[in-house]
Nucleic acid binder design. Structure first.
Length: 357
DNA sequence: TCTGGGGTCCTCCGCCGT
DNA sequence: TCTGACGGCGGAGGACCC
């Protein structure tokens, strides 16, 4: 009916609670009540970071992105488990199937979260949320937190306000009282760098950000991001729930357990990564025109080198040649490498590429 | 002694053609 | 013929997300 956007939309954001850890606790009930830390290969003596810590582990200060070795120091009694991505993806499919019984207007926000546009559903927000929570519990045995708001930005903030097993409904009238007192870092798109930049300006809450003029924000952060911040801190977000999109690239990267000087090892690793990426292209039916090689040195400085083909390809040999021509442009002399990566971009769907290849 | 992996988007810069 | 403006594009790097 209303295409002018006058009737507020109703967007639901759902976030599974401590997802990877919850899946592990579900299949191994003896883990319940103990600190569980999922990350890397599950060995806290090796390189890797925490993907998910359950709520017990979080009380020790363990959180996502923390190096496993640091997590072990904080919580030596923790149970460290490897990431079992395939199992989590299967559980993810199950909870998303529950969401699709509510509406087809579902946008996946990664393995453990999603947005729904429930504007046209003739039920109260509480009732929709309750249906979803019951359905997901039945299908997976897991709990989730839900936020409902007039747009994706606010719905995501809302789902984070009450965890675990929470339900938070935000309206435009709540922006001053509930959004503005939150720390700046709660705003989607504000990471550590912007947080630091804003703190240096004396801005530590979303409300203080909202006191800045658009001109000031653009002067500090450029026109695109400045405009975004100006709107976001006022709870403005017109972005639609996108139900389908095409991948832009496929990539693989690996960090060596110990830094590597030997060119042969680097080359062999790059060849193996290229094989994996080519496998993804073939599986998903894409061809790539551009290959980007990434090298990270022991001092964490990272560089990339890219090369393109005249026409897209999904042939391993062609992409490997291209990857090696990128690698040749990197000065490796005497330097220790900790990570090698390979990305295939500039994708075309194979059936849409009518050139010879 | 640290700091993963798989993505997206944005900005800046240099090159090229008009 | 030279120079500069400008837009498109590819490459490099950075910030951010889960």
């Amino acid at each position: 009916m209303d295409t002018q956007g006058k009737t507020p939309r109703r967007i639901l954001h759902i976030d599974m609670d401590a997802f990877f850890a919850a899946v592990e606790e579900q299949r191994r009930p003896e883990l319940k009540g103990k600190p569980v830390i999922i990350g890397g290969g599950g060995d806290p003596t090796r390189r890797g970071v925490v993907s998910t810590a359950n709520y017990e582990a979080r009380t020790f200060g363990v959180h996502s992105a923390l190096p496993l070795r640091s997590a072990y120091k904080l919580c030596p009694q923790g149970i460290f488990l490897p990431v079992d991505y395939e199992t989590y993806a299967e559980v993810s499919r199950r909870f998303k199937n529950v969401l699709l019984t509510v509406t087809p207007l579902m946008e996946s926000g990664g393995i453990d979260e999603a947005y729904l546009d429930i504007s046209d559903i003739d039920q109260t927000s509480q009732s929709v949320a309750s249906t979803i929570k019951t359905g997901i519990l039945r299908a997976t045995g897991l709990t989730c937190s839900i936020g409902i708001a007039p747009n994706k930005l606010l719905a995501k903030i809302a789902s984070d306000l009450q965890k675990p097993d929470g339900l938070t409904i935000l309206t435009e009238q709540d922006i001053e009282a509930r959004l503005w007192l939150l720390p700046i870092r709660k705003l989607y798109g504000v990471g550590p760098k912007t947080d630091e930049h804003l703190k240096a300006m004396g801005i530590d809450t979303i409300g203080k950000l909202a006191a800045l003029s658009q001109e000031a924000l653009i002067a500090h952060f450029g026109s695109s991001y400045g405009r975004y911040l100006f709107e976001a801190c006022r709870g403005i977000d017109e972005s639609p729930v996108v139900t389908h999109w095409e991948p832009k690239s496929f990539s693989r990267e690996t960090t060596f357990q110990t830094d590597v000087k030997n060119w042969q090892i680097i080359a062999r690793t790059l060849a193996a990564l290229t094989k994996d990426v080519t496998g993804d292209l073939l599986d998903r039916g894409y061809q790539a025109r551009t290959v980007t090689v990434k090298i990270r040195f022991d001092d964490f400085r990272t560089l990339t080198r890219a090369c393109s083909l005249p026409s897209p390809s999904d042939r391993e040999e062609a992409l490997r040649r291209l990857a090696f021509s990128c690698l040749k442009r990197v000065d490796l002399s005497g330097r220790k490498v900790r990570l090698v990566g390979m990305r295939a971009g500039n994708l075309v769907k194979k059936d849409q590429n009518h050139s010879f290849s």
